[in-house]
């Protein structure tokens, strides 16, 4: 009955890679790769906001955008342009990042976070959030903490971490739960659930996810430090 993985342990994420400063013209940028899912994030701003009526005179606003590239790898061409799914993911990305950001210094301005995925294999919103958090830090913004995110889930009653596309499409009972964690406090800033899961397994899965997020945080930290290490 219980689900088994061939290539890795149930609480083990796929191979992770991170790099900061990949887009030279942006104010901050980062790449985050988990397994075959690759996310690039660029941050522009704080800058003037247009259209003007979006401006908030008390604080700056965060505006995220999310897009999969047409060849990103679902098998058929991803149609470019916003759609219902990308609008939703842009929204949850904003909300996952906002708790760490202090935008009170920048009234009437906007910080644009642009996430693009050249290759996808499930867990895209989490990879996007990880990349965006690094890019925001790279842009020199005031942040309480970074944000690390990973998808957890449950297959046939077995909690697992970091589902691949193959596992998401597994024939049986699958729950897909992307979570974002603020590593310092352990607070959760994103929690979505697709599928069915019982309370016990949900708690177990989240605990596993938090552990992985701490690991991701170390990788993010190392990538950020690498860019700014003094070049002798």
């Amino acid at each position: 009955m219980s689900y088994k993985r061939k290539d890795r342990a149930l609480d083990e994420p796929r191979a992770i890679e991170a790099k900061v400063g990949v887009i030279k013209r942006a104010d901050g940028s980062a790449m985050f790769k988990i397994g075959k899912t690759t996310a690039y994030a660029a941050v522009y701003g704080p800058r003037n906001i247009y259209p003007r009526f979006l401006a908030d005179p008390t604080k700056g606003i965060l505006r995220a955008s999310y897009a999969m590239m047409p060849f990103a790898g679902v098998g058929e061409r991803v149609r470019p342009g916003p759609n219902r799914r990308s609008r939703e993911i842009a929204l949850v990305t904003e909300q996952a990042l906002l708790p760490v950001l202090d935008l009170s210094e920048f009234p009437n301005s906007v910080i644009d976070v642009i996430v693009e995925l050249p290759q996808t294999d499930a867990g895209t919103r989490c990879a996007g959030i990880c990349a965006a958090a690094m890019a925001l830090a790279d842009a020199g913004l005031t942040m309480k903490d970074l944000v690390a995110a990973v998808a957890v889930g449950c297959i046939d009653g077995t909690p697992i971490v970091d589902l691949s596309k193959e596992e998401e499409d597994y024939e049986g009972e699958v729950a897909d739960i992307p979570i974002a964690v603020l590593p310092r406090s352990g607070k959760i800033s994103l929690l979505q659930l697709d599928g069915e899961i019982d309370k016990e397994n949900l708690m177990k899965a989240i605990e596993m996810g938090k552990k992985v997020c701490r690991k991701i945080y170390q990788i993010q930290k190392a990538a950020l430090k690498k860019k700014y290490e003094v070049t002798k």
């Binding site: 104010d27 901050g28 701003g45 800058r47 830090a137 020199g140 913004l141 005031t142 942040m143 950020l224």
Partner: peptide, 21 residues
């Protein structure tokens, strides 16, 4: 609270920013 270089002056700890507008 941001990315920076640590600077200690007596009891005060501050960060020198490395990036930002």
């Amino acid at each position: 609270a941001r990315l920076g270089l640590v600077k200690v002056g007596g009891r005060l700890i501050k960060l020198i920013p490395l990036s930002g507008k």
